[in-house]
Design a protein around this nucleic acid. Structure first.
Length: 263
DNA sequence: ATGGCCAAGCCTCTTGGA
């Protein structure tokens, strides 16, 4: 089983890059973020013609998530509200950041965690509020699905190995201890990072700023992750970041990350 | 120390990204 996650930064702009990549890398499931389109304008046909079911939850211009699956789906669930009471979710499903599928006893949750803007801004507080509800949401998923893969753009570098320059005194959003602790407390519910099963090295990234030659200089962040329940983690044989699509003309600023486990 | 790029919208500037 291969499951990939990729922040595509507009599916309409990136559709041929993503389609070409899927042809060369026919993963069972691809989770994408920042689709940046309403569902009616989502380019489904390029992916359906490769044999993928296309599950979307988008909005105009911002955010948006989708799952391409070539394994049989039992269920598609959109938003936190699919598993949590309305009073817990509040307004957090207005931004389209959560979609999940169930297939053959496997649950895949695709997330686009809020960026967080500036430290202590409204957006930062929104991110922290979102992470609290995510904790509840993952808790419910773990209750119901023993085989769970949570993946997506987490907008958090888990530790200082995951950013090109460790933060100094000034708090950098995506690296603050509040965010990292929020992520850890979610993982402590019963999930682990398969990327760290294979290497303890730093300097391996999934996102590079478009500006300043960040990619050729490898000044990036590792913010796109998979998190797995113990049995899936034990069966995992690789977890890799494919930097090739980041080298193409008009790329996404993120690279796809692929996890593979033995069936 | 600062900014450097890119996408979408109704669009020649603003918002958002991380």
């Amino acid at each position: 089983m291969k499951i990939a996650t990729w922040n595509v930064n507009s599916i309409r702009t990136r559709q041929s890059i993503v389609r070409d990549w899927l042809q060369q890398n026919p993963v069972e499931v691809l989770c994408v973020q920042e689709t940046k389109t309403i569902d009616g304008d989502f380019p489904r046909e390029p992916f359906e013609s490769l044999g993928y079911r296309v599950c979307v939850s988008g909005q105009k211009a911002y955010n948006g998530v989708a799952i391409f699956s070539r394994i049989l789906l039992d269920e598609v669930e959109i938003g936190f509200g699919a598993m949590l009471p309305a009073e817990t979710v509040g307004d957090l499903d207005e931004q389209k950041r959560v979609i999940a599928i169930t297939a053959n006893g496997l649950r895949v949750v695709n997330l686009y965690v809020p960026n967080g803007g500036e430290y202590e801004s409204d957006k930062y507080r929104y991110k922290l509020r979102w992470l609290k509800v995510l904790h509840e949401y993952i808790d419910r998923n773990l209750d119901r699905y023993p085989n769970l893969c949570v993946c997506g753009d987490f907008n958090i570098a888990p530790d200082d190995r995951d950013i090109h320059t460790p933060p100094g005194n000034k708090p950098i959003v995506g690296t603050t201890s509040i965010e990292r602790e929020a992520l850890k407390s979610i993982l402590n519910l019963g999930l682990a990072d398969p990327f760290r099963k294979f290497t303890e090295e730093g300097g391996i990234f999934s996102w590079w700023d478009y500006r300043g030659g960040s990619f050729p200089r490898n000044r990036g962040w590792r913010i796109d992750h998979h998190y797995l329940t113990p049995d899936l983690f034990d069966r995992t044989v690789s977890c890799q970041i494919d930097v090739e699509p980041r080298k193409l003309p008009k790329p996404s600023d993120h690279a796809p990350v692929i996890v593979e486990w033995d069936d």
